[in-house]
Structure formats: structure tokens, C-alpha cells
Design a protein around this nucleic acid. Structure first.
Lengths: 335, 335
DNA sequence: TTGTAAGCGTTATCAT
DNA sequence: ATGATAACGCTTACAA
């Protein structure tokens, strides 16, 4: 008994065929005699049999496993999304494989390949470098996390970024700010360009020109936020407020502003987007736009499950989860 | 061409046997003719063939997948450990499946079962309810994350909790504190009892009695920290300092203390363990014991890889990663 | 209700 | 250097 028992071992012990065992194991017990069921169950028990999902997957072409691909696992935004995903997936009997690409194009490609090679049933992805075509090529049921203008024809679940930026800017405008700096994130990433669009749209709607100097190109983390505010405060016409693409950047900006001797929010207002937990802990605490992280994950998972379990394609579902303004202490009316 | 091409399709197109294709795919090219290799590669390219790891796993009995089981994904401690694990695992060509058990016994059991059913090659686990015997029963190569006295015979990688608590208490003693409250975490969990041991050991070494009233039984999160400090401050002989089992609890205690009208650290010192990022952002910032999270993950993964790739069992490796005291502003000398 | 047998896509053994 | 063939453990027509 070196290796694990198989259904054949169980069948022998129970005195039935392996087909019958298979039926019991899968819960297809409608057309199985009650005594057969009992004998199989007893045999499974005494042998310590555990179903081999690998063999099962080979035959059924279903793995009940999905991949979750995100750019940066250390951004506290993602674990909460992941939690929503996992809760829904666990309940449906699916496993979730994490793929943390760390902003790397090579890793993103490698993981996409892995997903096809391991025959993942589904994919939840916040795409960074990958193209629509590459994603389609995998033939894997996919839900995009976040809203990506280029990825129509895909299912998407994300915050309404346009609304988020509009709410943020409306608030800053109400406080009297007009010289607003933007830490938009590396422009090489798809999400940045869409945010850029949102910002220009807002300015256009207000009939105001947008000063390109106020838009800086930095990484999506605290280091990026630090670098960004440094650049902004070197301008001749220093901004009176800064809006960051996420809270991590905003927290970096907060720290760096303090280090440079500026008082937040007196000298400069700083605002983030996401509402990660740490945003409420800093001093000053961070004004931000709250994204419903858990719900995003949950809905994404639900939609993916729906898609995986129906053959027909159907029109792509695009769901935008609303954001809310959370006013704390890092913003201040312009005097 | 409804379904994916197989090595048979590739073999046909290349005019070789599927054995040869398999050899090329696996990189077993020492005994394959150069022209065969080229033709196979070309055929793979034109057909868009992708290796089927499911079929491969069935035959080789290796999945190149490991499971990471943790109690609470929202504790920022774990993502950093996970990162160390993933970096090492990715490099070695292994996938990591996340299992977030949320402190639930049923979920922990279910995931353990899933790990055996999906034939995971390895398991990295911070065990909560599961017993040594249950873990052995899976026959999966395992590395325990954290140090668990009950789990000798297993490989273990964790912080030196004993050293951590000794460093914390030494520091608080140096500041003059003797009435120290402990937020040790739910006593039903294995890790709590070992921490309890560490604490009593320290008191014994100092020749001092340990007042059991100062030890409270709460959950390992912010809510637990809040509840804990409330209890402690209702005692007749209020503690002058509080040590929490992790930073999350300490941060909860910090907030609650503030809400109750106590000034930290003037009225009471509060100290955590872990050094999660948020610990540096609060006001007052949190004095804590830094655990080397990334390194713990990395070493655990390395040891697991080693064990998975060698048949011989070998003596269990137990590695304790040292901790360091990080003095910030939540602690204060007793006046 | 139960069983027989074919097949899923690989890899491994043994010839040639 | 190459290939024919038998597993791996399961599911699923199809028969009985």
C-alpha cells in the first residue's frame, strides 16, 4: 500500500464496479442502490480513499480552479478584493491560485501561459501590459478587475473610476482648489491613461484648462507618491492640492510633504483613492474616495462563476461599483 | 479544431512520434535529433500547442502546486510572508494556491482535504485547529509557518517568539513597568498557549509572580485589541503597559485607549509584535517587535522545495528567524 | 440498478 | 535517435 488507493481498490473491497464507486463519489446516487452506497462508503472509509481530482479533471476538462492575477500583493487594496473573490469561489467549490506579477510584463505573460497550461477554468485579472488579443487567445473565461476602455467584449467589474475622480475633483474644487497636482501613476500602464482621460474630461466640463505640468509619472506605491510630490513642489506655481491615484501613493506624499516641511492640510491638501485601512490611521488621516473592495471581488467572482457554468457566451457584463467620498483631515479649504 | 491541439496533433504535423514531441516539450533533448527538434518546435508554433499539465500530472504524480494556508488574509502580516513564499516558488516553477481559513475549523479541514484531493506537492501552513496527526495523514510535504511546540517532527520556520516576547518584556521592564497586561489571543489556539508559556517563563526568570488577571482572551484582530484593553482598564490595579500578540491587536488597543480618554504613552504604554506597515503610520506610532516576514516566507519556501525534491525524509528543520525591537512612540518610562 | 469498455493527454518502458 | 505501447485514475456512453 505504498501509493494512495483508487476507485478500483474501493470497488474491489465493496464488491461493486468502479463505475458504481465513481457514482457514489460524485454524489450521482439517484440511480444507485442504497446498499451499494453504504458498502462503497464503508470501503472508502476503511481504505482512507481520497478522490483524485487530477484524473477527474483530465476526463471532464474542468479543474475547478481559477487564477487571480494582480499587479502588487503588498497594496492593501488587493487582499480585500481577494477576500471577496475567495469567499464566493470557496462556496462554489473553486480554488483560487494567486498570481502576483509585481508590475512585470514577463511575469504577467508567464502566468497567463501557466493558466492555459494548467487548464484553469477561469481568470480574474487586473491587466497591466497584456493585450485584449492575448487574453482572448487563452480561451479562458475571464473577468477584468477594474474598468479598461480597451477591453470591451470582456466582462468587467470595477469601481466607477470616472465617478471617483469626478467626486474627488468636485470636492477639491468646492474647497477652492484650482491648482491641483495629479499623481496618476506610470503612464505606460493602461489604467493610467483612462484616469488621465477622466481628469481631462472633468476640466473640460468645468471649462477650465488643464496644466500638464501638474501631472506626474510615478509608480503606484508609496515611493511613487514621495517622488511625485517632490516634483510637484519644485514647480514655480506650486499646487495647493494633490490627488493621488491610490491611497498608497497619497500616504507616501503625506510623509514626504511632512518631511519637506509642509503642513498638511494647511499648506497643501492631499487626497487619495481606495480607502485602505491605513488611510484612517495616519495623522492627518487621509481624505479619500472609498472603493467597495470586497464587493468588487465578490461580484467579479459571481459573474465569473456564471460564465464558467453556462456554454453560451452572452453579452459582456460591465459592472461599475459606486464610490463614496470620505472626508478626513488631509484636505482643507483654500484660504 | 474545437478543442486544443495535443502532442498527437503536433506529432502528425511534424512527422514524428508523440514520444519525440513529449521529449521536446519537456526539454529532454539530449537524445533527440536536431532536425526533429526544429520540426516539432515549428509544429508547436503553428498549431498554438500548449502543454496539458493535468495529463502530465496524472502520469508523473507531480502537480508543481503548493497550498498556503493562513488564518486571516486581512492581517497585513501575511501578504508579506506570502510574497517571500511566492517569489521563491515562482522561481522554482511552482504555483501557490491561497487558502484563507478565517479562523474556522471547518474551513481548515476542508482545505486540507482539498490539498490531498488536488494532489498538492507541498503545504505551507500556520496551523490553528488542525492536529499533528491530521497533518501527517495527508502525506504532503509540509512546512509549518510559525513555531508550534506540538509539531516537532515537522519542518518549521517562524520568528523566535520566545525571543520576541523576552525582548518586549525586557524593554518594558527597563522602562519600569511591572503591571503589564497581555492581549495574548484566544486561548483555544495553539499559538496562544505557547506565547503564554513564553510570558510565564520570563516572569519566572525575573523571580516575579505573574498576575493572571492581566492575561485576557480575545481575538487576534483590532476588535480583539479593543475588547482586551477595555477589560484590562476595568481592573482595580490597572496595568501601566500592555503587550499585544500582534500589531493589529495593538492598534485596536491604541484606538480604544484613546477613545476611553487615556493618553498613550503617558497614561499607558502599548506595544505590539510584527511591525506591520501601519504600525509606523499611527499617532503615536507603535513600538513593536519586528518580525522578518518576507524572510520567513522565503526560507519556508526554500525548505519546502528542498523536501519536495528529495525522497529521503531527513531530520526536521526548525528555523527561528530573529526579531528586533523597534522603539517608537507608544511606550514611555514609568514615572 | 449495475457493469463493460473506451478514452482524456501525457510519460515511461522497452524495443529497434 | 526514434517509436509502439502500456499505464496514470477517473468519467461516461452504452449494454445488460
Amino acid at each position: 500500500m505504498a501509493s494512495r488507493p483508487t476507485i478500483i481498490d474501493v470497488a474491489k473491497l465493496a464488491g461493486v464496479s468502479k463505475t458504481t464507486v465513481s457514482r457514489v463519489v460524485r454524489g450521482e446516487t439517484k440511480k444507485v442502490g442504497e446498499d451499494s452506497i453504504q458498502r462503497v462508503k464503508k470501503a472508502i472509509e476503511t481504505l482512507g480513499y481520497e478522490r483524485n481530482f487530477i484524473a477527474s479533471s483530465l476526463r471532464t476538462e474542468r479543474t475547478f480552479t481559477v487564477m487571480l492575477m494582480i499587479p502588487d500583493i503588498t497594496n492593501p487594496f488587493w487582499p480585500e478584493v481577494a477576500r471577496g473573490i475567495q469567499d464566493a469561489m470557496d462556496q462554489a467549490g473553486y480554488s483560487v491560485v494567486f498570481a502576483n506579477i509585481d508590475w512585470s510584463k514577463a511575469r504577467e505573460k508567464a502566468f497567463l501561459r501557466l493558466a492555459t497550461q494548467t487548464r484553469m477554468d477561469g481568470l480574474l485579472i487586473n491587466p497591466i501590459h497584456v493585450t485584449k488579443a492575448e487574453l482572448l487567445e487563452t480561451k479562458i473565461s475571464t473577468v477584468i478587475l477594474g474598468t479598461r476602455p480597451g477591453f470591451f467584449s470582456f466582462n468587467m467589474v470595477g469601481s466607477d473610476t470616472n465617478d471617483a475622480i469626478k467626486k474627488a475633483l468636485t470636492y477639491l474644487f468646492e474647497l477652492g482648489h484650482r491648482k491641483i497636482g495629479f499623481l496618476l501613476g506610470k503612464s505606460e500602464y493602461a489604467s493610467s491613461s483612462s484616469r488621465y482621460q477622466n481628469v481631462t474630461d472633468f476640466y473640460k466640463s468645468q471649462g477650465l484648462p488643464l496644466n500638464e505640468d501638474y501631472i506626474v509619472d510615478v509608480t503606484f506605491d508609496e515611493v511613487g507618491g514621495m517622488a511625485g510630490i517632490k516634483k510637484l513642489m519644485q514647480l514655480d506655481l506650486k499646487p495647493t492640492a494633490v490627488l493621488a491615484s491610490n491611497d498608497l501613493m497619497a500616504l507616501g506624499a503625506l510623509q514626504e510633504a511632512h518631511k519637506m516641511g509642509y503642513r498638511v492640510p494647511k499648506d497643501i491638501s492631499i487626497m487619495g483613492i481606495d480607502d485602505i485601512h491605513a488611510a484612517s490611521l495616519t495623522v492627518p488621516s487621509l481624505t479619500t474616495i472609498r472603493k467597495q473592495k470586497y464587493q468588487i471581488g465578490q461580484r467579479a467572482a459571481e459573474i465569473l462563476l456564471e460564465r464558467m457554468n453556462s456554454d453560451k457566451e452572452g453579452a459582456p457584463i460591465v459592472e461599475k461599483i459606486p464610490c463614496t467620498l470620505v472626508i478626513r483631515n488631509s484636505t482643507h479649504a483654500l484660504l
